[in-house]
Structures are given as C-alpha cells and as structure tokens.
C-alpha cells in the first residue's frame, strides 16, 4: 500500500471516529439519542388501552407537559394543541393503523410512529409561534392532508 494512502485512510477514519465520539457522547452522556422507546401495545385495542384511551395534554410539572397522542389515517388526536412559551413537552404516541411519521419542521422532532409500538420524544418550545405538525411517512391516499398545528404563546 502507498504510504500516502495509509496516511489518507488514517486521517479520514480519524474524522469518522471524531463524528462517532461527538454523537456517542451526546447520546449516552447527555441523553440526546434518537427516539427509541421500547414499550408495545395491541394495535387493535389502542382506544381501550391506557393512556391512549384518554389522549390529550396533561401538565405534569412546572411548565412541563405530557401529550398523549394517537395517529391514524389521516389525522392526529388531539389536534390544534396550545402550549405556553418555554413548555417542556413529552410526546407519547402510537398508531391505530399503519406506520406514520411525526415531524415538526424547524425542530428536531422527527420520529416513526408504528402500530404496536409506543414512541416517545421530547422538546422544549422556547420560541412562540404556530408550529406545523406533519406525518412524514406515506400512510395512504390522504397522507398529504395529515397535519395539525401546535400554537405556542
């Protein structure tokens, strides 16, 4: 192998290792890893299984909220959520039918919501405004209409 090639491989692999250290540190030391909740649920009995039998917004602390949400073709329950500025929100979600996505453009909220699985993701809404919430996984003929808003004021 060329000496120059050895140097190149060492440097470039070094860059990849630095990337891994950064994301690894954030994931395991700062708890910033991707949404990976592992609870399961019967996808055909979502409406009768707690907490999804009562979807909605609950204040669980000082400006801290839990939003229990169900997704189904082609909407979110609850929809048109209103929250105060600075609210720390924990979304707990599942799907009642096919695989959906949960994305809020302009934030890091981006998670798959699948039937049979409970997904969780958190975000602190520091800026006021009307946030767009969309399904970003194809879920059927009305997929493009599957959206709602979160108003923060």
């Amino acid at each position: 192998m060329q000496r120059l090639e050895e140097i190149w491989i060492t440097v470039s692999v070094g860059i990849l290792i630095v990337f891994m250290i950064i994301v690894g540190y954030q994931t395991f030391a700062l708890g910033m890893g991707p949404p990976s909740h592992k609870e399961v649920i019967d996808p055909q009995k979502v409406d009768t299984t707690a907490p999804f039998n009562n979807p909605g917004i609950k204040e669980i602390g000082d400006n801290e909220f839990e939003v229990v949400m169900t997704l189904q073709a082609f909407g979110f329950t609850p929809n048109s959520i209103e929250l105060p500025v600075g609210a720390e929100v924990h979304f707990t979600m599942t799907s009642k039918d096919v695989t959906h996505g949960f994305q809020i453009p302009g934030t890091n909220i981006n998670a798959m919501v699948m039937p049979g699985h409970i997904q969780k993701i958190s975000h602190t809404f520091t800026k006021p405004g009307e946030y767009l919430v969309i399904c970003n996984e194809y879920c059927g003929i009305g997929h493009q209409a599957m959206s709602t808003t979160i108003t923060v004021k």
């Binding site: 690894g24 994931t27 592992k38 798959m112």
Partner: peptide
Amino acid sequence: IVDPGISQSVKFLHV
C-alpha cells in the same frame, strides 16, 4: 434510527 422498538445501544452499534 428514529424507529421505536430498537434500543439506543443497538442503534449506536449500527452507526
């Protein structure tokens, strides 16, 4: 990577 049901350590192994 943003799926439920797969633990963060398994995801990181795959990174």
